[in-house]
Amino acid sequence: MASQGTKRSYEQMETDGERQNATEIRASVGKMIDGIGRFYIQMCTELKLSDYEGRLIQNSLTIERMVLSAFDERRNKYLEEHPSAGKDPKKTGGPIYKRVDRKWMRELVLYDKEEIRRIWRQANNGDDATAGLTHMMIWHSNLNDTTYQRTRALVRTGMDPRMCSLMQGSTLPRRSGAAGAAVKGVGTMVMELIRMIKRGINDRNFWRGENGRKTRSAYERMCNILKGKFQTAAQRAMMDQVRESRNPGNAEIEDLIFLARSALILRGSVAHKSCLPACVYGPAVASGYDFEKEGYSLVGIDPFKLLQNSQVYSLIRPNENPAHKSQLVWMACNSAAFEDLRVLSFIRGTKVSPRGKLSTRGVQIASNENMDAMESSTLELRSRYWAIRTRSGGNTNQQRASAGQISVQPAFSVQRNLPFDKPTIMAAFTGNTEGRTSDMRAEIIRMMEGAKPEEMSFQGRGVFELSDERAANPIVPSFDMSNEGSYFFGDNAEEYDN
């Protein structure tokens, strides 16, 4: 993207840094990872977990959730003011799984939030270390993106479920800051804005008074975040219109849905970061690795190297396929839920299948599930090659597409044709070009129609051997075009429920 120079890199967003050079960025990201790792080690000690239990991804998720809940100030305040039966607002906890007599047992633990905050700050040299908290939120978000298709949420806001490739980060909490905003897809931002506008339509006082002023500035800020994701002048001009509207209503909703559809071809720039579970960072720190000293990046080879040398386990339900569970977590670790499966298959070195073909449910185990038949197995999170994460949407291309997802959002900077089903997408653009945004709409449609099938995206960008740390010898991959490109292809993934 041309304006790259004016933006802070995501590592800076990730670490609240002012302008830093590459070495400083690597050190501050490393410091953040160190903090998460030290916190995780301490929690495993508190909970008396064995090494194996500490490497269980379900335990990692519970521990991450506990610290996120302990620092969720708004919710904590709300819980104190609106006490609900049987919930102690000062405590947080969740299921911890232990191996007892050759069987997995679930144990519900409860801790004072104050105590968890103390352990977290102690692991982070006394700081609140917001960057580390956001990092864990993005890992949870990436896992949700890989596990669930947001059909219901899309339909509720009037969008087409086939636009799911635009929904990265749709389950990120509001408090995820600049680093969170960077990884949100165009569809996620559109959905947040539509929800806001709908509230304004239904509630006369939404934009009024002292609160209304705050609401208005939040609305304009979200519009600017979305505008910054678009790469064409016409899309940005249309966002200006939406932002400046005196009284946002149905016309703005129409414009936003139009823009979301246009992003299936004229893709937005959305950041991709490899955020790993805390149970990967903990053992690495415990083994003596100093992330701050060595430096770390979320968008280069580092996460690949770390996963190459990590042992992570997962509980497996009786009829689940461990290899499929591994694929789910591998995609989440690489922030690749909406990437082209052919690119992923090449990088991973084994075939990556669409969601609907995987015999696996989510990673988390519900409290009512029976533990008797639970097994555990090693997650295979290694890769054959590594590639640089991208934040450009890439230019655009036609490809055989599917009944489910009709476009992709690249996660890796790797040369390819970008699949999208042009006739299906263009069919949504018939007729409606009147109104105050008509010239911009016409211009956007013209650009979409001009998108050429034979153009290559990320020209000359390749993948790298894991021994090639400096990215000196790019390998331009070859793809098996007979395979499906979309992950949520004609899909039956479970729906995400809060």
Rank of each mutant, 00 (worst) to 15 (best):
248 P>R: 05
250 N>T: 07
403 A>C: 13
484 E>S: 03
109 V>I: 13
234 A>P: 13
197 I>A: 15
474 P>C: 00
13 M>Y: 01
129 A>E: 07
11 E>F: 03
290 D>S: 07
234 A>N: 10
24 E>F: 01
401 A>G: 04
205 N>M: 05
378 T>K: 14
115 E>F: 13
441 R>E: 05
230 F>T: 14
192 E>Y: 14
353 S>D: 02
164 C>K: 08
458 F>Y: 15
367 S>P: 00
331 M>E: 06
323 A>Q: 13
277 P>H: 08
32 M>R: 03
280 V>P: 03
119 I>R: 03
456 M>G: 15
217 S>Q: 14
354 P>D: 10
68 L>S: 13
429 F>C: 14
65 R>S: 12
224 N>L: 12
312 V>L: 13
460 G>Y: 00
59 N>C: 04
392 S>Q: 03
347 I>L: 15
31 K>R: 15
439 D>I: 15
111 Y>C: 01
95 P>S: 13
490 G>Q: 04
179 A>H: 05
383 S>D: 13
15 T>S: 08
124 N>S: 14
386 W>C: 06
416 R>M: 07
343 V>Y: 06
95 P>M: 07
492 N>L: 06
438 S>N: 15
242 V>F: 07
488 F>H: 05
278 A>F: 11
113 K>G: 00
66 M>Y: 07
247 N>M: 03
259 L>W: 05
57 I>V: 15
461 R>W: 11
283 P>I: 14
467 S>G: 12
402 S>N: 03
56 L>F: 04
27 A>D: 00
51 D>K: 00
287 S>D: 07
113 K>D: 08
134 T>N: 10
134 T>L: 05
75 R>Q: 01
466 L>Y: 15
165 S>L: 05
193 L>W: 07
78 Y>F: 15
341 L>S: 11
407 S>L: 09
69 S>M: 08
324 H>N: 11
65 R>K: 14
352 V>S: 10
28 S>V: 01
162 R>I: 09
257 I>Q: 03
150 R>L: 13
59 N>Q: 03
391 R>T: 06
159 M>F: 02
263 A>P: 00
256 L>G: 13
138 I>W: 11
115 E>K: 10
413 S>T: 10
391 R>F: 06
367 S>M: 08
295 G>Q: 05
419 P>C: 10
253 I>Q: 14
54 G>H: 14
392 S>K: 11
232 T>I: 12
268 G>Q: 02
451 A>P: 00
123 A>L: 10
107 E>A: 11
